[in-house]
């Protein structure tokens, strides 16, 4: 009988003990070396989007979508040469992705659409995951940068936020 009572008490203690609450956080406080820059504005993944969007000025187009069930809006700001996507959390918006659309903008490491695969390798190194046949994905901290490659040339560059690291 003592065993049964001990088991039930142990089970109760286990259940009531402080265990991982599982609250999600907006990205990793450590950040990432992979950031997008345009003019004087630096766009880091998982950063608070408010100032970034304010500093970038009026977008060419704007699209928002409610997430299924949860409150808040996923937002997409399209500028002439790039797109910024944000995600909502705790009534604020955070940077979720940046997509470079044309060759007028280069990454801080000097890669733009049209660059060769070897130029990407030189700028970013060999620590990558292959995407498709020749594409590259580099991760650091809470950000990932992807280079899509078509016929040996970069056809798309996209930064993604890596969320839920904390």
């Amino acid at each position: 009988m003592k065993k049964i009572i001990c088991f039930v008490i142990a089970l109760s203690a286990l259940m009531l003990a402080a265990c991982g609450g599982g609250s999600e956080s907006a990205g990793n406080a450590e950040g990432s070396k992979y950031v997008f820059k345009t003019g004087n504005v630096t766009v880091a993944m998982n950063a608070d989007a408010e100032n970034v969007i304010a500093n970038l000025g009026e977008p060419k187009s704007y699209f928002e979508s409610e997430s299924c069930a949860f409150k808040g809006l996923d937002k997409q700001y399209t500028y002439s040469s790039f797109i910024i996507d944000t995600y909502p959390k705790d009534e604020k918006d955070y940077i979720n992705a940046v997509t470079i659309l044309d060759d007028t903008i280069a990454t801080p490491e000097g890669i733009r659409i049209g660059a060769t695969v070897s130029q990407v390798d030189t700028a970013y190194g060999s620590d990558f995951t292959v995407l498709g046949e020749e594409g590259r994905s580099y991760k650091d901290g809470d950000a990932e940068i992807q280079f899509l490659v078509t016929n040996g040339l970069v056809s798309s560059i996209k930064y993604y936020a890596i969320t839920g690291l904390n």
Binding site: S61, I83, L148
Partner: peptide
Amino acid sequence: EDYPTVTPLAD
């Protein structure tokens, strides 16, 4: 009112 901009995928 607007449509999302379609971005390419790696795969």
